[in-house]
Amino acid sequence: MPASRRFPLVLIGAFLALYLVWGSTYLVIRIGIESWPPLLMAGVRFLIAGSLLYGFLRWRGVPAPSWAQWKAAGAIGILLLSCGNGGVTLAEHAGVASGVAALAVATVPLFTLVFGRFFGHRNTRLEWAGIGLGLAGIGLLNLGSNLQASPLGAALILFAAASWAFGSVWSKSLPLPAGPMASAAEMLVGGAALLLGSALSGERMTQMPTAAGWGALLYLVFFGSILAFSAYMYLLKHVRPAAATSYAYVNPAVAVLLGILFAGEQIGVEECVAMAVIIGAVVLIGVPQWRKVPASVATPADALRGELSK
């Protein structure tokens, strides 16, 4: 297969991994924290995934990151994994439904545009309109019974979304290791930070995890971390940040459906309206990111659109 066609197929696979796998991880996290302390589970998840990926890459001859690359990867790992994923895990432990957590995280593209201003990106009027609509959606979401019942969970989930967005934008200008080694280094540092947070907060295992708890951890390690997170870091290097965070269009619907079917979660009218508003805002700000650009400045994302239109 020609390299020009293999590249779009890799992009398609990476997007599918984010859309479907990450949409399911919200429910799996909820299952996991029934057996594991939240920060401990998240830390073990990323430390195992990072160690496996790092060991495999070194065995394949990939050079170890330099000190500058370790520092850059560590900063992004703490923002995306320790603060981002750790915040989501803590929010679900505080009582936020998995579907509502996914919906709140759908605000990542909105935060991405806001933080992009710090790095010289200029937003269009359409993007600012999307940000305003998204803020209205966040307000509606907080009127729902789910987040009102857990103010701490609401604060944690928005902090997680903001941390993830800032790390995603900042990563574009840092000297990260090439390819999957960036994911491995970030997971190692982010996982270690989560385990430190677990120890400092006094988390303790009171009993052995159930079979479902072990299964959730393994799913999060191999699918949610090694597969999906590596796909996300790949996309951050090859498409615009708002395109890489477009999984926010699909994850809430996947998470809400799985939460209703398998966990008996209930989503109120306010949350349903908020879902429509937030996803509408994310689609609105995605329009400028996916518009046509001249061939001389085309990105891999533009190449993907051209390939799909054939």
Rank of each mutant, 00 (worst) to 15 (best):
A101R: 01
W128N: 13
A165S: 15
A165H: 09
A199K: 11
S150H: 13
G179H: 12
P177V: 05
S163G: 08
G191H: 06
S183D: 10
G179F: 10
M208E: 08
Q207L: 00
L133V: 10
G190M: 10
P109N: 08
W128D: 05
L174S: 08
I131A: 02
F159H: 11
S173D: 09
S171K: 08
A160L: 01
G202L: 06
R122E: 12
N142R: 12
V169S: 08
M208S: 14
G132Q: 00
K172M: 12
L200T: 15
P209E: 01
G137C: 04
M205D: 05
A182T: 10
A185V: 09
W128R: 10
G153F: 02
L188K: 09
G153N: 07
M187A: 14
V169L: 07
L143F: 05
S201R: 15
G139N: 00
P151D: 02
V105T: 12
A160H: 03
G139Q: 00
T206W: 02
A184D: 10
V105L: 13
K172V: 14
A178V: 14
G144C: 07
W170R: 14
H121T: 13
L158V: 11
S198I: 07
L196D: 03
V105H: 00
A193M: 11
A199P: 04
L147N: 06
I138K: 03
V108H: 02
L113C: 12
L195Y: 10
T124N: 04
A162Q: 04
A104Y: 05
A199M: 12
P209F: 02
L113R: 09
S173A: 09
A165W: 05
L126F: 06
A129G: 13
Q148I: 00
F166N: 03
N123C: 04
S150F: 00
R122G: 05
G134Q: 04
L196M: 14
G190D: 09
A102I: 01
G179E: 12
A178L: 14
G191W: 03
S173P: 01
L143K: 01
V105Q: 06
W164Q: 05
A185M: 10
S150N: 12
G197S: 09
F115Y: 15
L156H: 08
V114A: 12
G197T: 05
M187R: 14
T112E: 00
K172N: 13
